[in-house]
Amino acid sequence: MKEEKHIIFLFFLPSIIFLAVLFIYPFLYGFYLSFTNEEGEWTLENYLTFFKDPWEVRTIWTTFKIALPATLISILLAIPFSYYMRHGIKGERLISFFLILPVTLGTVLVAEGMLSYMGPAGWLNQFLKAIGIIKEPLRLTHNYTGVVLGLIIHNFPYALLMLLGYVSGIDPNLEKAAQILGADGWYIFRKVIFPLWVPGIAMAFSLNFVMAFSVYPTAVLLGQPSGPTRVMSISVFHWAMEKFNFNVGSAIAMVMGLIELIVILVVMSLRQRMFKGGSMVGKA
């Protein structure tokens, strides 16, 4: 029915307009800005401004140096944790509450709290000194370590809950079947759970990496935003919102988006190569 089709289209109209105006158009606009100067003439100047300045180019490396370890640590920690929690555990509600807490409160509050808690006179250093592990307070804020720690505290629970969502979706009968066929715990993990979990892990890694790669408040508040933790977001913000040069700002944002896209594509293709057979989660 012709009429029917029109009506179906009407259902989607609001969100199509929404997507077009608020998401696709700004992207295209940013793309356009990045290739033009303030007079609206086409130019590569904006990209050159970024790539010619070693101080700016270094932000790429700095961002990787922060985002990659933070993501890897979060995911590698989250894998055993979520594996242990896959069938539900005692006190799960309370535990999940504490896990969701830093995710919900957001990076700003966590960073503000970490500044005091992990500062030289904070509880953490007091405690470590009291039990005799350290003599001098550890420097955990206003440096690289602070940013990575801040990211992990925010991203680890996020990764954990996400991985938990995937692994608990794997039919528990598969484990039982494998067990009856003679497999021990490690064998089940390697041959049954892990292969079925890989798509989820790849997805969790990608999302966490992208989140960490665009880190802003954590890098500013917990790090040294004018030096060792000057990440790409800071550079973008600096050009766009402090110098009010949206052209260069957009150009750097485009570079940032491109890098994120490349990393996602690499992870996804690795996943494809690792396990060709199944990407289907076993639900019957």
Binding site: L22, P26, Y29, G30, F31, V210, F246, G249, A253, E260
Partner: peptide, 16 residues
């Protein structure tokens, strides 16, 4: 829009 971090598309959006 849920996958891409806000810092990535926020600048063009702000410009607009």
């Amino acid at each position: 829009p849920m996958l891409i971090p806000p810092m990535t598309y926020g600048i063009p959006l702000a410009a607009m």
